[in-house]
Amino acid sequence: MEIVVRLDVMLATRKMKSRELADRIGISEPNLSLLKSGKVKGVRFETLAKICDVLECQPGDLLEAVPS
């Protein structure tokens, strides 16, 4: 199994740009881009909570486990 980040889907659903989300949760746009592409080792609970707060969603809406 591998964890896939569905942040781009949520951003499209909420009609929000990456830059706006990055500004509102206080991380850099390149870091958010890395997170969207899944090229990170992990996500801090703190960051996840901020994203969920801004996008009004649950962690499960952002992360999905798929067979590798």
């Binding site: 991380i27 870091n31 958010l32 890395l34 997170l35 990170v40 080792k41 992990g42 996500v43 801090r44 960051t47």
Partner: peptide, 8 residues
């Protein structure tokens, strides 16, 4: 520190 930087 390097590992920590890999976490967003």
């Amino acid at each position: 520190a390097e590992e920590n930087r890999a976490f967003i």
